[in-house]
Design a protein around this nucleic acid. Structure first.
Length: 733
DNA sequence: CCTATCTGTCATAGG
DNA sequence: CACCTATGACAGATA
């Protein structure tokens, strides 16, 4: 079990790097306080076979590689992080299309207006292209969808319980006995070394560590990815204003179109929107350079992007001719389906006018209870009745992305997304280009979301599992290889050494043995390491294998023997030189790799001087530390590479979720258009007792809780609208 | 010669 | 306490 210190020193560091790379701010505390495995362990995965092993238990290996790879629950970790990123990327817009469907009105040819006023059923002529939507079904699916979101959130929370640990425990160890004792010896050794190898002192001006440099570069990349054109803010301001706030209450259908949303947009929401858009910028900058300009250099004054208003020539609206002039804004009184309104129409029934049916068609009772007054009538057309409506509030959906922008984003993201095949893309485009956004329910969220989610999770899990499997296979292969050249072969050389005398050893052989686990071919077995060009064969002397590995000493002439001796001398490490100088009677390999008991046993076999014993102990210490350093560096490299891969995965996920979000926004806008046109059609067909149409500035439609549609005066509708405006505000405080 | 990188070593922390 | 591993830092070697 790893201590919390590990969390703080490693997990936090790596996570910070990760977040910096992708330019995303995530609540790190969630991870620090969770019971997830430490990031280092998780990220390392099977490569954590390099973590501590009891060396003296590894008789058959030189360094303990490949033994007992720790099993890491990668799925748990990746799932949690994926969920977090996706939830975060979903941003404030959590409006499944099922909720949007609650807006739909459909024509029931044989039905009549249900509820308290059957005789005054609202007449509505057949409107083309609308599909049936059943109210109760909507309700069920809404709740299900909400539950799904909350479950995701709960999953996130479930993996981050508070940790009760002792952070203050510190083990203060001042013991330095052996090190101090050895220091004098080491000084002597260094003196000897200087005599042996007359190396020239050289100033090391830049002691930079490779891993650090790499990490720094990655950080820079992430930061540069954050940059964006200067004109960007002006262009996206409309979007940030348009996207509904995430903090809105679960009853989305009530507040979905509430004008309050824009007014109460928190800075955090804006920041999130900003980050999302910047993410899109990153993706585009990375992969679709040309398209990005099309998207983000859109005219700042684009009416569709700055303030949502239906253009008169919108295809949907061409059928509704009566109130073309009033279509300029639908910003008022968007508090549809608000439960608070239910009681009002009944209480003030005296002012209500029963709707006069002009034909046999009626409205379906899809709308639960709402006030449609002013929904499609801009304040400037409402006359005096609108004076009490307060300041004009921008349409929360009004600033939705321009259709062209939406298409652009969608297409670009589709192009970016690897896991998104062309069939899916074309299907999506067809659906969004079609007038019938109603089909979104069956083909899109949450079903499409869940499906894409599943594919994403499967891909991510498969990638992680593949990496883990490849890493484990690498570890196992290295393990077997090391086992093949372990102590058994080492003992083969013992005869030769002892026959040659006290200084007989084969340093090159040890190099070869140590090299085995770092064979580049094995590294290339890890797919994510293939592109790494660094040489991580730490101990491999390039020529040692060819020339020094198979020395035929007896068959060589004297001159070549001397040459070879010189070559061997050059290949020997400093400790090996020291050992030879001190006439240590066994190999450094034995000194370093033997278990303690056998090592002591070996020492007891020989009469060694104090200097020899000290040197042997230092050789052992240094040799072990050398291997530890190699392991450490390899681990560090693996960590960085894994982080790099994780960043790529997260960026892909983020791009996909952003694309889905944009598509939701687009479908939502289509729904709004349909509701608008239907409202106008219904209102335009209403006639008073004299057979004259009602004035939109004086009357408005309102849906009651029982499904009936009421025609109420504007003043009453505005009062109700204001009442609904205040409630969400109060709730948030 | 300068620089970046690799590698070994030391000191230290911690298991 | 002995022994071990991990790791940051440093320095020499090397490309």
């Amino acid at each position: 079990m790893l201590s919390l210190k590990k969390y703080l020193t490693e997990g936090l560091l790596q996570f910070t790097i990760l977040l910096s790379l992708i330019g995303v701010r995530v609540d790190v505390d969630t991870y620090l306080t969770s019971q997830l495995p430490p990031l280092r362990e998780i990220i390392l995965g099977p490569s954590s076979a390099y973590t501590q092993t009891q060396f003296h238990n590894l008789r058959n290996t030189l360094d303990g590689y490949g033994i007992h790879p720790k099993s890491i629950d990668l799925d748990n970790y990746f799932t949690a992080r994926r969920l977090l990123s996706q939830v975060r990327a979903l941003d404030r817009f959590q409006v499944p299309t099922t909720e949007v469907n609650a807006w739909l009105v459909h024509r029931d040819p044989e039905g009549s207006v249900s509820g308290s006023q059957p005789s005054s059923g609202l007449a509505l002529e057949s409107s083309s292209g609308l599909q049936d939507v059943t109210g109760p079904d909507n309700g069920v699916r809404e709740s299900e969808t909400e539950q799904g979101f909350s479950e995701d959130l709960e999953d996130l929370g479930a993996v981050a319980p508070p940790v009760s640990g002792d952070l203050t425990k510190e083990d203060i160890d001042l013991g330095a006995g052996r090190e101090i004792f050895d220091y004098s010896h080491r000084q002597k050794e260094q003196d000897v070394d200087k005599e042996l190898a007359d190396g020239v002192e050289q100033e090391d001006t830049w002691p930079g560590e490779g891993a650090e440099v790499l990490a720094r570069n990655l950080l820079v990349d992430g930061e540069t990815g954050e940059s964006f054109p200067a004109q960007f803010p002006a262009d996206i301001s409309s979007l940030t204003e348009a996207v509904p706030s995430e903090s809105e209450p679960p009853g989305l259908q009530n507040n979905l179109l509430s004008p309050l949303l824009t007014g109460t947009e928190s800075p955090f929401d804006l920041e999130q929107q900003w980050q999302d858009l910047m993410s899109i910028m990153e993706m585009q900058a990375m992969e679709v350079n040309t398209s990005s300009e099309i998207l983000y250099n859109a005219p700042p004054g684009d009416p569709l992007s700055t303030n949502y208003s239906l253009a008169p020539n919108t295809p949907i609206n061409q059928n509704v001719s009566l109130h073309q002039a009033s279509l300029g804004g639908c910003s008022q009184d968007f508090s549809l389906f608000s439960p608070e309104v239910e009681s009002l129409p009944v209480a003030s029934s005296s002012t209500l006018l029963p709707l006069v049916p002009s034909n046999s068609t009626t409205l379906n009772s899809t709308f639960s209870s709402t006030n449609l007054a002013g929904l499609f009538f801009p304040p400037q057309l409402n006359g005096t009745a609108n004076d009490t409506a307060g300041p004009e509030l921008p349409d929360p959906l009004g600033g939705l992305l321009d259709e062209a922008m939406l298409d652009e984003i969608s297409l670009m993201d589709l192009a970016i997304e690897e896991g998104f095949n062309s069939v899916q893309a074309s299907q999506l485009e067809e659906e969004f280009d079609s007038d019938s956004g109603l089909s979104l329910d069956s083909s899109h969220s949450p079903s499409s979301l869940s499906s894409s989610e599943g594919s994403s999770s499967s891909s991510s899990s498969s990638s992680s599992s593949s990496s883990s499997s490849s890493a484990s296979s690498s570890a196992s292969s290295s393990f077997s290889e090391e086992g093949a050249v372990g102590y058994s072969s080492d003992s083969e050389t013992l005869d030769l050494e002892e026959a040659e005398g006290a200084v007989g050893y084969q340093p090159e052989y040890s190099k070869f043995c140590r090299m085995s686990y770092q064979d580049p071919s094995q590294l290339s077995c890890l797919p994510y390491l293939e592109h790494v060009g660094h040489n991580h064969t730490y101990n491999m002397a390039p020529s040692a294998l060819d020339s020094a590995d198979l020395p035929p000493p007896s068959s060589l002439k004297k001159g070549s023997k001397e040459k070879q001796a010189d070559f061997l001398d050059k290949q020997m490490s400093r400790d090996e030189h020291r050992a030879r100088a001190m006439k240590i009677p066994f190999t450094n390999d034995k000194i370093i790799n033997l278990p303690v008991e056998e090592f002591n046993e070996l020492l007891s076999k020989y009469q060694l001087s104090e200097a020899q014993l000290s040197l042997i102990r230092d050789i052992r210490r240094r040799g072990k530390n050398k291997m530890a350093a190699q392991n450490c560096r390899k681990r560090k490299l693996d960590t960085i590479l894994n982080l790099e891969r994780d960043v790529e995965d997260l960026q892909r996920d983020k791009a996909r979720l952003l694309r889905e979000k944009v598509e939701f926004l687009r479908s939502l806008r289509q729904m709004k258009q349909k509701v608008q046109s239907l409202y106008q059609e219904v209102f335009g067909r209403l006639r008073d007792e004299n057979g004259r149409p009602y004035s939109p500035s004086q009357y408005a439609l309102q849906y009651a809780g029982d499904g009936s549609v009421l025609l109420i005066p504007r003043t009453l509708a505005d009062q109700q609208a204001r009442r609904q405006e205040r409630k969400p505000k109060d709730r948030r405080k």
